[in-house]
Design a protein around this nucleic acid. Sequence first.
DNA 1: GCATTAAAGTGTAATTTAAACACTAACTAA
DNA 2: TTAGTTAGTGTTTAAATTACACTTTAATGC
Lengths: 229, 229
Amino acid sequence: MSYTYKHPHPAVTVDCVVFGLDEADLKLLLIQRDVEPFKGRWALPGGFVQPEESLEQAARRELIEETGLTRLYLEQLYTFGEPGRDPRERVISVAHYALVKLADHNLRAASDAVDVAWFPVAELPKLAFDHEKIVEVALKRLKAKVRYEPIGFELLPEKFTLGELQRLYEAVLEQPVDKRNFRKKILGTELLDALDEYQQDVAHRAAQYYRFNRARYEQLKKRGFNFEL
Amino acid sequence: MSYTYKHPHPAVTVDCVVFGLDEADLKLLLIQRDVEPFKGRWALPGGFVQPEESLEQAARRELIEETGLTRLYLEQLYTFGEPGRDPRERVISVAHYALVKLADHNLRAASDAVDVAWFPVAELPKLAFDHEKIVEVALKRLKAKVRYEPIGFELLPEKFTLGELQRLYEAVLEQPVDKRNFRKKILGTELLDALDEYQQDVAHRAAQYYRFNRARYEQLKKRGFNFEL
DNA sequence: GCATTAAAGTGTAATTTAAACACTAACTAA
DNA sequence: TTAGTTAGTGTTTAAATTACACTTTAATGC
């Protein structure tokens, strides 16, 4: 089976920069390539866009196929299309970035055959193609976005403590945050619901759990509310 | 001549949302289609990406071919790839937006045959394909970007008055701005050089001309400076 | 030439927001 | 019972933002 066109058509792929948050630091999901080119190198999960699916659908499908991850926050990032970025043929890659509640998913749900692993963003291996560039852009975007949209919650489990949330911001922004000012601000947005639940079996005072109130967020967003931290 | 691939490849185009600033309001450059589909409809300038050119190069080439515009500020916006957005075949469009110094260019420099025209963004005609959606995204991006990066200058001639600059911000943001506060802030960035030149033949006190100091901007940007207005 | 019109130019006070900062509470483990 | 660890909590100061009104300068119309 083959496909013929009057004009040359590039191939179009989607690639996904998937962020997860471990207790300590921000991590990135990579897969190890088992074919040439760049066989053996780590790379972003991704693949060709099928004729009947949207770009976002393609990204979600590839993530399920290659990593088993599903139901995650996903957003288009940027499109990389330099001639020569793939040695085989002209490939336009519509890059996406995704945030996943690492604690919820049993890591590596469906990684048949392919090697999948989380790497701390500070210690990434050498990547295939121009994927290092893509990761750089994604990190920059994540840092910028976390300041004016409450997307950080996508990295945490449903219930979380304010301490966990603060560590998230510190990991993403790569700078320390004042505890009292942080709590003031984050509670001031009224996007968090305090639960009647506390940590158990911790070797210190138990923290209260909170939950992100997505409904309220949607409401406030409609009214043009500003969530800048 | 034809091109054959083992897998189906979509066509890839670039489309450009070109903004210009007339005395009064923000305008958008459109071309009238002279072929089906959407023959006769107004549309964004754009076209197919050639095998050996980057996406940005493609956008610049199409702009020159279709509108004669050159040397303008150009940035990638978003990639639109819904199946069915073009009735002929699957087309992925990497949309860009551009800012042009309308006053400098003699409008319509090289519009051979095709009809090209500027429309106030508030009074756009019905557009071809999903171009209305693209314009919407571009406007949103422009509004957001103008607040934290000095890109507004790309819409003005080399020399401009603070009044012109203020009217630009008001046109883009679609809201009035306090004159004194605006001047305080914009001069506070130290990105403007006051010239020893004043308006001539105006029926009111002549305003001083200023120039955007791009070199200083690059310097400050490197040092992580913040240009938020 | 004088009054009218139109935009340029200029500073201060009030309010809001951001930043800095240190102790007590609660729980476990040794 | 003590040491270690994180949770939780307000106030003061500095900085940024907002609101606001009159004088200056030039051309135009009478």
